[in-house]
Computed example of a mutant assay.
Amino acid sequence: MGKKTIVLGVIGADCHAVGNKILDYSLTAAGYDVVNIGVLSPQEDFINAAIETDAAVIMVSSLYGHGEIDCRGMREKCDEAGLKGIKLYVGGNIVVGKQDFQEVKQRFLKMGFDRVYPPGTTVETALKDLREDLGFAEVIGA
């Protein structure tokens, strides 16, 4: 089985790069092919990168609180672009203000995201979910 590709980036006008780099390093070390589109990325950049690389997952990060606005319509755009089965993950500080995370999660699931992570989620949690969703064993520690 070949490596699964993940498109990773920080959506919208968000320039928080440190967590993005940590995810890139951790996912790569776990055996995934990571295409990191960086920060300040519109939905179209994620989608175009996923098309070009035949990605299995788009992983969206947002820390400045406007992720809900930035992510609206992304599932529909993926479907229109021929990415109907792609997994969509989102995490970070994805809404403005202190809101109940379970309510936030439900809104993102209704928007078509497969996995929704609150601030402080460990990389190990995402790796476990990736293995579950993609059926891919880690290279490190395998």
Rank of each mutant, 00 (worst) to 15 (best):
K98I: 10
I22S: 01
T122E: 13
G91S: 04
T28K: 04
R107M: 12
I69E: 12
G120I: 00
Q99A: 10
T53H: 14
L127A: 05
Y64H: 02
E44I: 01
S41M: 11
A55K: 10
T125D: 09
N48C: 00
I94T: 09
D33P: 01
Y64Q: 01
M74I: 14
K110T: 15
A49H: 09
K21I: 14
V90R: 05
V123A: 06
K110A: 15
P118V: 00
K128W: 10
R115W: 12
A55G: 03
A49Q: 11
E76W: 05
E76D: 12
D79A: 13
Y64L: 12
K105V: 02
K128G: 09
L27Q: 08
Q99E: 14
L27P: 08
D114Q: 08
A29Q: 15
E103P: 04
V104R: 03
G92L: 03
V104H: 06
G135D: 13
R75Q: 10
G135A: 10
Y25T: 13
I69K: 05
A126C: 14
I58R: 08
D54Q: 14
I58G: 07
Q99L: 12
C71E: 02
Q102S: 15
D24S: 08
H66W: 13
E132D: 14
R115M: 11
S41N: 11
I37D: 01
G85P: 11
N36A: 06
G65R: 05
Y25I: 15
V95S: 06
I69P: 01
V35P: 00
C78W: 08
E52W: 00
V90C: 12
D79R: 11
T121W: 03
H66G: 12
M111Q: 13
K110I: 11
G92F: 05
L63P: 04
T122W: 09
A56V: 04
K128T: 14
E44H: 01
G135L: 08
G97T: 06
K21N: 09
V35Q: 02
K105P: 02
A29M: 14
L130M: 13
Q106P: 06
L27F: 15
G67R: 05
K77I: 05
C71K: 07
V116W: 08
F101E: 08
